[in-house]
């Protein structure tokens, strides 16, 4: 059995921003998915974008200049 791929999440101001980020990341060919924000990261009721940790710089690159604010946390 192979070890699970390390994942990270990007948190945004709102679901609208998360949806925009998902579209941008998918267009850049990054495998990602919107999931509920893990409780230990925020008490917010929204969603965040989960992606393979190895894609962090690709995510940052594709979101720069397109989304004003986001934070990335490894899971």
């Amino acid at each position: 059995m192979t070890a699970p791929t390390p994942q990270a999440v990007a948190l945004f101001h709102s679901v609208s921003h998360a949806l925009r980020a998902e579209k941008i990341a998918k267009a850049a060919g990054i495998a990602c998915r919107l999931i509920p924000v893990p409780r230990h990261l925020s008490s917010d009721c929204g969603v965040c974008l989960r992606f393979p940790l190895a894609e962090q710089s690709a995510i940052e690159q594709s979101l720069s200049n397109q989304i004003d604010y986001y934070e990335i946390f490894p899971l």
Binding site: S14, V15, S16, A18, L19, R20, K23, L34, I35, P36, V37, C45, G46, V47
Partner: peptide
């Protein structure tokens, strides 16, 4: 309800709004 929960159909409702925008 869009943006009120993290489940798939809430996200789909949010996506409905986003696609309209």
């Amino acid at each position: 309800n869009p943006g009120r929960s993290g489940h798939g159909r809430s996200i789909d409702a949010g996506r409905t709004l986003y696609e309209t925008r």
